[in-house]
């Protein structure tokens, strides 16, 4: 060890580190309460809030739908469960400015780490959508099985607390990587709320079963003809 290394070790004792707080009680409370609390994110609240709000509305709860419409204005996705028959899935996406790109290019086109589920391997096609003024895209989509299976990754957080309240028939809670997730079993209409707050309806097709979850600063949505266990296994395999 040379002098500089010795000096650095000596310096260690001189660095000001405040006394450690006791977080044991706080951590216990958090772990005993399954619903994530907003306080957790109080330091990220100051950042640009690109919250992905996912509201899952059972039929016959129109009043709630109206109440939700205000919340949804932020940004993100809204899902309305439907009892109607599923239409063919050959329609444009509600995502604005969507374009196909190579995986490498997609990684450069989004600000978040684009992860691929190990269980599915390399995607057949990759798309990015909803760019901001600097060209950073808000959504990246990985397509598999000729487009019948898709993973959307959104730059933003799902309001999981809100999600949990919205759970109704056809919608169940699940767990991905220890965190809360929502499983929508069966066809439902899909709405995307873009950066400007414009609600984009996807009227011509109904989404297949969908799993929604959050990891880090990225919200994910997995859609396809899957059972809940299959969907969770794919979600758990994100690299």
């Amino acid at each position: 060890m040379d002098d500089l290394e010795r000096e650095l070790r000596d310096l260690s004792g001189w660095l000001e580190t405040p006394d450690a707080p006791d977080v044991t009680a706080g951590v216990r409370v958090r772990l005993a309460t399954p619903a994530p609390r907003w306080r957790r994110w109080r330091y990220s609240a100051a950042a640009v809030l690109v919250a992905l709000v996912v509201a899952v509305l059972p039929p016959g709860r129109a009043a709630l739908a109206d109440a939700v419409a205000g919340l949804v204005r932020f940004a993100g996705i809204r899902i309305v469960t439907s009892t109607g028959p599923a239409s063919p899935a050959a329609t444009p996406s509600p995502l604005p400015s969507r374009r196909p790109v190579a995986l490498d290019e997609a990684r450069r086109a989004v600000r978040f780490p684009l992860r691929v589920p190990a269980k599915l391997g390399p995607p057949e096609q990759v798309q990015v959508a909803d760019p901001d003024a600097t060209g950073a895209h808000r959504v990246a989509t990985l397509l598999y099985r000729g487009g019948a299976l898709r993973v959307d990754a959104f730059d933003g957080r799902v309001d999981l607390l809100f999600l949990k309240r919205a759970v109704g028939p056809g919608v169940a809670l699940a767990h991905v990587d220890g965190g809360l997730a929502v499983w929508v079993d069966g066809p439902h209409a899909l709405t995307y709320v873009d950066r400007a707050g414009t609600v984009r309806e996807e009227t011509a097709r109904l989404a297949a079963s969908t799993l929604i979850w959050q990891e880090g600063d990225v919200a994910y949505r997995l859609e396809g003809a899957l059972t809940r266990d299959e969907a969770v296994a794919i979600a758990d395999s994100l690299d």
């Binding site: 660095l15 580190t17 405040p18 450690a20 706080g26 772990l31 957790r40 220890g178």
Partner: peptide, 27 residues
């Protein structure tokens, strides 16, 4: 806590470690 402070978390060090402990439990 020392790690968070030395890596520059400043006054948010307490929040950072509480979050880290919760995540660690889940992982």
């Amino acid at each position: 806590h020392r790690t968070a402070v030395l890596l520059g978390a400043g006054p948010d060090a307490e929040d950072v470690i509480q979050e880290a402990f919760v995540k660690a439990y889940r992982k």
